[in-house]
Design a protein around this nucleic acid. Structure first.
Lengths: 326, 326
DNA sequence: TTGTATGCGTTATCAC
DNA sequence: GTGATAACGCATACAA
């Protein structure tokens, strides 16, 4: 900038104004532009940030960037924030509470303009960090009603009910459930949803296996299930588990869906990339990502907004594994 | 900082020194620490960056963050750069040349300390941008020998040869190839590798279909292939195509591997998450990511280093779809 | 319109 | 060891 101004024979202030398109006589504009082009001037993002008090960065923090459901969210978020000139910073937390709260506290350094976080566990430490951070945060996931933080949620409890109702309507009577850890927010919600749905249909709740929200644990859980019972339908707490269960079923010689029907959750591209294609409860991942991004941008623009809650309703996508036509 | 210094009754300089752990009498240290804790002082990352001339950010630019091969790279990169206190900025370029060169030019703004980019097309515009950028860049992929930029590469040409040799040894005689676009670097390399391998075995090269490096195009390409020929083996240019081909084969009533053997490429988790599990040529994605990250950190530390080329050799992982035991 | 001067929040340099 | 002061690169009140 200094060089450009000197070369153009004007002050640094004038050069700055021209380069930002505010003010400047035609002659000044011409000379500054020429000088800038000649020396290949390009503004320094950091200095500009220091002055403007914004970095142009949005952080997205998730447990596992390999899970297709987060990839879908990330894409949706990226599309929204890119429109407003922001770039996306991705944090992989590994689901560690310490790692997530550390991230939230680090926000005070103001290295980003805002953060979208989707924790699978929400502890008191989370809430404390969330309510004291000086930088806007939007949480994707269930947040207690009294926490004054923008929040986009879905109802996986009723999502599980959609799956169960669908299977019951198809005549299935021994419906099993493969869940993730019960010390996670989605884990407890889905467990409660499954139990409530089965009880509503007057069915015994005895076919539950708990593993992790991953492929291999899902497959192992299905193997445990098949070794002790003969379900005619399996609901899975996410698509990774469902793919694992599908393979366990096929290895065990079961026909899907004739012998055992299967429904996953999250409706990721994995469900469509399996064979047979897996029915799945959509929790609107893209939509939640999109909404979260919009909420965040709004709050960055106006910090005085009241805390908002947005809700995305689940829906069932029926495919081959639950009686749809192949 | 100003507040902390005032509260501690020392100068800003002393406060800064104490907070950075350099110098300070025991008494000064105590008072500054106390004051900092009292006002909840936390350093401003931007101001610190302006002074230190580094952002602590590393960018990783890829075509599609949903492709498991890039997810694997990203994880490996993240692990390495995190050790040195860097954070990862992820760019999705969509494979657009304009988008990638724009990204490279934007590096001049110095919003990151360095970039790892894995373009599937490398044009003259790329080379021009790469050689003029003032910020360290490492390219994952084939770069011309005379381009003075750090580069981590593999040899997918010989990777394809591994797959073909394996299938020939297993007695397959009508080997097909499902490739991605021929205007991409991996596309041409894999095409050349397939042709060379088949010719080396004295086999006719007539079973090639070109689609895109995605699931649906892969499946469509396999359907086109099956409608016009009866291959007894299929080599796929990546795992997404392979999964699509597997499904096309199963829909067509083919037994895999009895009727048709299948080998993918990239050895992503997708290959293990399919049923039957897909044999795949590993191109060492994690290893390439790790090496690229190390090269970048070294160059950031010492810009005078000569340009380096690192090579990761491909290897074949045999699974169920190519005659391995189920 | 233009230039001067100041501030953004830190760190580094230099006398003391 | 400490404090005043000058950077870092830019944007902007204010006065001219």
């Amino acid at each position: 900038m200094h060089t450009v101004a000197a070369r153009a024979g004007v002050s640094i202030a004038s050069a700055s104004r021209v380069l930002n398109g505010v003010g400047g006589s035609p002659e000044t504009v011409r000379r500054v532009r020429e000088a800038a082009a000649a020396v290949g001037y390009v503004p320094n993002a950091i200095a500009r940030s220091l002055q403007s008090q914004r970095t142009g960065l949005i952080a997205f923090a998730v447990e596992d960037i390999g899970n297709p459901v987060y990839v879908a969210m990330m894409r949706a978020i990226e599309a929204v924030v890119a429109e407003s000139g922001h770039q996306l910073l991705v944090h992989a937390t590994g689901g560690q509470v310490a790692s997530e709260t550390a991230l939230l506290r680090r926000l005070a350094h103001r290295y980003v303009d805002g953060m979208i976080i989707s924790p699978i566990r929400i502890t008191a430490a989370h809430v404390a960090a969330l309510t004291t951070t000086p930088v806007p945060v939007v949480v994707i996931g269930q947040l207690a009603d009294d926490v004054p933080v923008d929040n986009v949620r879905t109802d996986s409890r009723s999502g599980i009910a959609l799956a169960v109702d669908h299977l019951v309507a198809a005549g299935r009577t021994r419906i099993a459930f493969l869940n993730g850890p019960l010390d996670t927010v989605p884990g407890v919600a889905r467990d409660a949803g499954f139990r409530a749905a089965l009880e509503r249909h007057g069915m015994p709740v005895d076919l539950i296996e708990v593993g992790d929200f991953q492929y291999a644990p899902g497959r192992a859980a299905a193997e445990r299930l098949l070794s002790r019972a003969e379900p005619d339908a399996i609901v899975c707490a996410n698509d990774l588990i469902a793919v694992g269960a599908l393979h366990a079923l096929l290895v065990a010689g079961k026909r899907v869906p004739e012998d055992v029907a299967l429904v996953g959750m999250d409706d990721t591209e994995l469900a469509q990339m399996s064979y047979p294609q897996i029915s799945s409860v959509s929790l609107g991942s893209e939509e939640r990502g999109r909404r979260a991004a919009r909420l965040l941008l709004e709050r960055i623009a106006d910090g005085a907004l009241p805390p908002r809650r947005e809700h995305v309703a689940p829906s069932l996508v029926i495919r081959a594994t639950s009686g749809g036509v192949q």
